[in-house]
Every structure is written in structure tokens, then in C-alpha cells.
Write a protein that binds this DNA or RNA. Structure first.
Lengths: 345, 345
DNA sequence: ACCTCAATTGTAAACGTTTACATAAAATGG
DNA sequence: CCATTTTATGTAAACGTTTACAATTGAGGT
């Protein structure tokens, strides 16, 4: 079962077996065959636990995401995945279930060698429930080391800005999407954001507000609602919006997930999309195209984001300095049929 | 950084520090405080690599699923997750991307101690690309041991029937769904299955054929198509179905994902659901309810499946014999508005 | 045949824990 | 206060690798 038995079986030393496994070119043809035979005979498989222990690496990367089922993150995962495979890493995942606390818990995973690096796809606060400011794992380390962490497609909270990120220009994209609605003639445009502390959507909200300001349109207090990043949250928000008089003629949702929920609620109230209300989403998940009507949204290159994030993390794990600048990847406004001119008043 | 330094700092032996970490109740209050102080002073965090190595466990469970973004599996994952957390396991995930080969690769992960156990949520063949029959990891082990594996919500291929599973009664549920359509008056009912070798959908196809036979209805060869488990696959299948004369009046899709694709394609061809064609799905993913019209489907208790699967795996990893019987959990036919009587001829 | 140098193999230490066993200290009972 | 039991701590081995270094072997040149 162990290298030792293989060595005995093959009549060589354990070092030779180890070399056979790690650098076969350094062992003579004849010995190689002996070892190979011994391995097959004993049914040996190299104990990864011992190996990783000895080498001091786990070959594991932790990916923290809000929810496994999210179709957008699924694309990002695929990108991460591809690079991880190529570079010999396996993926550990952790769902936050939209709980934003716990960065330290994750940082500790690399200090305690449960993972070599971390990719944060979720909003995570650097402070733990119990600890106050200053208890961040970043500052707590006596040696001042920082774990290899890359933040994918997520706005960076100030305390986490030591870390690099890979994302689209959320502000610009949201501004563009909002401008599209304004260009169609909408004046009363609502915005459904994520949870109160979701960093992801705050930039998008900024873009929305920017576009409104640019067009000289005031944003009514009741137009910006929290949708909780969920279908149900969006439906609740829409119910509030529909009760308003005059009612908004368009809704910009910070994620497609919420846009899908919003569309459902609007239909449930007997209104038509886009005749009565226009909807714009963000992410271009695969269900956006099959929705009825197909959803106008901002496409993010999910797989590319994943790939770049993982590539950057790999460099960090190798010990290289990868800086802390965000890498901005291109977005694209995808016009479909959920948007049209507002109804005549 | 290591237990050794903590021991020195605290003026105790390394064994005491270890005991402090693993069974604090076995160290005296006074020493406990000393050790605690030393740990805080040195910023020690226990090296999981060494720990796991010594204990011979990884505390990792590999979950193999076709695709991370699938909303149904996401529910299952949540259940797995919950139990894993409670039992102290982390989750490694592996996407098969619908590649059904490679069971051995996964089985090897537990033999090589990269994971303590495996949950298969995807169709996986026990034979590798290169090896022929008999090269299965199950038979290759000289000691005849079998890795702890549980198959969640997946029909078992004969070679994998050594392993337990947790799932709904796919045959019965599909039969019920088909009967619902027949009861509405449909006679020409098509079925969109998964990939050719997808075990997941073959039981559902069996149920569909059973219901048709029960009702004395013949199944036309052209009515059973492969949908590839994807939106696009389903759309292709629907295109074929719509070209038929007479055209089927109802389509039973083996998964909601495909049902969503089917609905989109039907609408794209100017037909109405359910007025022209009724649709039934399977899984009750969260997008089924928000679809337009809301989708009639078979609900599976996804989280429960995940929980039971993980619980069973835990027992297996503890060395207990958990048998190989499938555990059947209840399903529920959810009637929504994508089904109605067929159009008058 | 001898020397040199390179290629190959062996020896043994190390990685950071856990844990059986031995020892020391405290608690208990008379 | 001693004998005995219980509890707490220390010592050292072990887990299965990798790897620096030493030792051996083989080849090539003279």
C-alpha cells in the first residue's frame, strides 16, 4: 500500500520509487520496469495526504460563492475549473448563503493549510461576527503575511482592497443599461438592488444613478429597492413598485435572477412586458434568453472572468506579486425584447 | 508557527499543546491558559495538512455533478452542504460536463486519499476510456476494498449497483406525469430524454412508455428524442417535433432545463402553451414557477435528497455497512399552467 | 587497467501532527 | 501522612512522503 512495500517488492529503495513517481526520467529503464511491475502488483496508489504534507501544499483552491445554483457563477466556475485542471488544482467550494461575514474563516483556511488560495465570488466582510475592527485575519498575522486571494467579479470593500479582482466595469455597464431605457423614453425608472450590504450591486446602483443624473432625471426615493438577489426578493420589490402612482415604466434589476422574478410578478399582476413595463437585467444567464419575453441584459464574459481570476491566483500562489489592481473585462449590452418605449400617458 | 514553538513558548510539551487542541478537557485549567496565551502570541494555526496526514483522513468529500450551475443539483448541494458542515467535512466538487466516463478516476481519489468519500450526482460509467470491461477500480483493488460512494438522485448502472443511492421513484413519477397529460385528453405525447447514455432519464422514459402502454396508446418512433439535458438540445428536439404531421400535442421533458428550452422554441415558432402544446417538466427548479406560463412539473425534494445522501455517506466513511439499496424519497406532481386539454382537431 | 565524470541508486532526515506508554503530580481515602 | 488511585504531563515513535547528500555503478578516455 505504501511506497515502502513497492520498494521491497521491486528490490529498490524507497527513494527510487519516489523518483519513479516524480521524475521517471531520472531512473534507469531497467529499474523503471521493476518499479512499474511492483506498483501494479501491489496496487499501490500514492498517498496524496502524505505527499501534500511533505510538500507543504494542498493543491486545493477554495471558491467562495453565494450560492452553488446561480447560473452566472456557474459560468465563472467553469472558467476557474478549466484553469485549475490544467494547473493541477482541485476546487473546494463554500456557499455563503448570502451571509457576508466570515472572511477570516476563509483566510484561516490558507494559513492552516486547508487550501493554497481563495477565490471570493461573494460579498464577504473582512470582519468576523465577534471581532471588531482590527481583528481581520490580514492584520492578525504576526508575520504580516497575506493569503493568496483573488476576488472575481465582485466590487472590493475598502478593507479587502489589498486583493486583486477581475470584473466588468459595473458602474459603466449599469450606466449604459440605464441610458438604454432613458433613450427609449422612460423617465420613471426603478432600480432593484441586492441586499443592503451587497457590494456587488452597489456599483451598479451607482451607474444607474449616474445615468439618471446625466439625463437630468431625479430618482424618487421609492424607486430604489432591495431585492435580496433572489427571485422572491425581486417579487416583493415589484409589488411595492406597482403600488406607486404614477408607477415606474421601467425596472433595472441588478441581476438577471431578480429580473426573472420581477417579470413573473409583473405578469402575475396582469401587466405586459414591455408594453406596460420594460425590464433590464444584468449577467445574461442562460435563462435570460429563454425568458418570455427574452430579457434585455448586460452580458458578462463569465468564463473569461473565471479563467483570469484563477490564472491570477495561480501566479499569487507561486509566490509572485500580482498587485492589487482590478482587471476589467469587457461587458456587452444585449438588447432583446423586454424593453420598449414606455406606454403613452 | 508549529505546535513545537507554541510548546516552547508555553513551557510545556508538544503533546500538551496537541491535547489542548483536541481535547481541552484533558488539560488543567492553569496549563490551558498558558497554552492559549502562547497560541495567541505566536499566531499559531494548526496545520491541517499534517493533522489529516497523521489521522489518515482528508475530511473532504468529492461531489461529482454534471454542471455546477444546474438549479436542481444546486438544491441537492445545499442539503449535502448542511450535513457536511455539521459533520466536519468540506466539499470538493468536480464537474463532468456531461462526460460520462471516469468513475475510476474518482474512485482513485479516495484510494489515494484525496477525499474520504464520493457522491455521484452525475451519470458516470465505471469504465475508463482506455480500459475495457474489468478494469473498473472496483475490481482492480487487490484487497477487494470498495470506496465509500453514494449515488444521489441517479439511476444506477448495473456495474455501479454495489453502491447505495437516494432518489425519487423516477419510473413512477414519470408515469404519473404522463398520465396527467393522457387524462387531459392528449394522445400524441412526445418525450425528450437526456443524452443517449444518461441513466438519469432512462427510468423516466420507462415511466412515460409505461403510462402510454397502460392507456393503450402507441408511441411513435419520432416522438422520443434526445435533448442532451440542455436548453439547446431541447430546442433542437422541439424543432423536429414541430415538423411532424400530425404534430404531438404535448411534450414531456425529462428535466425542467429542457422544458424551459422547449417552451422557448415553441413560442419562437409562434405557438402557444398550453393552447397548442402542453409541456411537463421534471425537477421543479426555481425557474419552473417563474416561467411563462408556469411549468407543470414533478417536484423532487432536492435538499432532502442531498441530506440523506450525505448522511449515508458519512455512515459509510465511518466504516459502517450501509448496504446498497436505493432509498426512495417522495416526489410530487406540481400542476401549473403549462398543461391543458389538447386543441380540438 | 586506471582514472574521471556523470548517471543512478541508497541512506537517512525532515515535515507537524497524534497517540501509546511512561512518568509525574494531584486527589482521595484511610 | 502514607498508600493508592486518578489525573495531568512528558517522551518518543509513527504516519508516507520528498530530498539533500553520500555511495555506488557504468561509461568514456587514456
Amino acid at each position: 500500500m505504501s511506497i515502502k512495500q513497492v520498494a521491497k517488492e521491486a528490490g529498490v529503495s524507497i527513494a527510487t520509487v519516489s523518483r519513479y513517481l516524480n521524475s521517471p526520467e531520472h531512473v534507469r529503464e531497467k529499474t523503471r520496469l521493476k518499479v512499474q511491475a511492483a506498483i501494479e502488483k501491489t496496487g499501490f496508489s500514492r498517498n496524496a495526504l502524505a505527499r501534500n504534507f511533505r510538500r507543504g501544499k494542498t493543491s486545493l483552491v477554495m471558491v467562495v460563492l453565494p450560492e452553488v445554483g446561480d447560473p452566472f457563477f456557474s459560468g465563472v466556475m467553469r472558467g476557474i475549473w478549466r484553469v485549475a485542471r490544467r494547473e493541477g488544482y482541485s476546487i473546494l467550494i463554500s456557499e455563503t448563503q448570502f451571509n457576508t461575514e466570515g472572511f477570516n474563516e476563509y483566510a484561516d483556511m490558507v494559513f492552516s493549510k486547508q487550501a493554497d488560495g481563495i477565490i471570493l465570488l461573494a460579498s464577504i466582510s473582512p470582519f468576523m461576527r465577534d471581532g471588531g475592527a482590527g481583528s481581520s485575519a490580514l492584520e492578525r498575522r504576526p508575520d504580516g503575511t497575506v493569503p493568496p486571494v483573488v476576488i472575481g467579479c465582485e466590487t472590493v470593500t475598502p478593507q479587502l482592497s489589498h486583493f486583486p479582482s477581475v470584473r466588468v466595469d459595473n458602474v459603466g455597464a449599469a450606466r449604459e443599461a440605464s441610458r438604454h431605457l432613458i433613450g427609449l423614453g422612460h423617465r420613471r425608472i426603478a432600480f432593484i438592488s441586492g441586499a443592503r450590504d451587497s457590494l456587488l450591486t452597489s456599483d451598479r446602483e451607482r451607474g444607474y444613478r449616474g445615468a439618471m443624473a446625466d439625463a437630468g432625471l431625479a430618482v424618487d426615493d421609492g424607486w430604489v429597492l432591495e431585492g435580496d438577489l433572489s427571485i422572491d426578493g425581486a417579487r416583493r420589490a415589484v409589488r411595492e413598485l406597482l403600488a406607486q402612482r404614477p408607477r415606474p415604466t421601467a425596472i433595472f434589476c441588478a441581476t438577471d435572477e431578480m429580473a426573472l422574478g420581477a417579470m413573473h410578478e409583473i405578469r402575475a399582476n396582469g401587466l405586459a412586458i414591455p408594453a406596460d413595463i420594460s425590464i433590464v437585467g444584468f449577467d445574461d444567464v442562460r435563462y435570460a434568453a429563454t425568458a418570455s419575453p427574452p430579457l434585455t441584459t448586460v452580458a458578462q464574459p463569465a468564463e473569461e472572468i473565471g479563467e483570469h481570476t484563477m490564472e491570477r491566483l495561480c501566479r499569487a500562489m507561486l509566490g509572485g506579486d500580482i498587485g492589487a489592481e482590478p482587471e476589467v473585462v469587457p461587458h456587452r449590452l444585449v438588447l432583446r425584447s423586454s424593453t420598449a418605449a414606455p406606454p403613452a400617458e
